[in-house]
Amino acid sequence: MRLIYYMIKRFLTNKYNWGYGVAFVLFWVLMGAYVFSSQMPLEKTPDYYYTAAWTGMAILMTLGTIGIGATAVVSFQTGSLSHLLRFSKLTSKYYVISVYAGTIPSSLVFGILIVACVYLTFSEHFGFNLAPSNMPGLLLASILGGTFMTSLSFFLNLIILKTSRKMEQLIFFIPLILSYLFGFGYLYLNLSSAVYLSPFTAIDSLIMEFYLNKSIPLNFSSLVDGNYLTATGGTVVSPVLAIASLVVWTVVLTFIGIYFVRSVYYKPLEEGRIA
């Protein structure tokens, strides 16, 4: 259990995680509450949807950052892993579980903080009580989302370790880049059933669903009328399918991760240098 405790401690006390995962995201939350909201009507329902949409994006960004942190952990530990998986009691399963377990408390703590800040700032700005309606659901979505981001980052890092570190600066940020792309894509494009295929939109839609405790349209962009959000829409996202999509992605990536981490060899960080 010591490696699990150690990972939890390191993830929770990592100042860069707090900086990029909380402080930077809170900056965007404030922008969403006070700057980008200027064209929203002072009506509770559209404002509530708007708040939920921002919660989804903000948590997606936070979880993406946590994923990047998890990638960095593995990236630095190739020498230890290659030796200790052979010559100690450390197993690939225990290691992977420790990294995952390390990110769960961060996902929860950061998720709660982001939700609290969104609630306070958006409610203060619009003058309505825009409290989240299903907090346990939001926590569940944060854990599932955080675990998926970790599994994706872990997988991407193993690709780097099996090929070359030359591309790692880009590959490290893929979870965050995809979070932005799919997060905004879901809000402004009609992704139709592809929402279920993309774990990023699954996280986003689940967070919105649990924030509002209402069904979310599959085509969220249909709610956008001009620059306004309206609370009408057609087919809704099935939370069961969204959760299933996330779980399947996470399980598949985790198995690949556990399998490949066994054959990792020391990869000097200097290989990533370009000058």
């Binding site: 020498g79 230890s80 052979r86 010559f87 100690s88 009691k89």
Partner: peptide, 16 residues
């Protein structure tokens, strides 16, 4: 796999 009888002082192995 999981053979605990070998130890090294190689710096690469000390990043955990």
């Amino acid at each position: 796999r999981n053979v605990n009888a070998i130890s090294t002082n190689l710096p690469e192995a000390f990043v955990l």
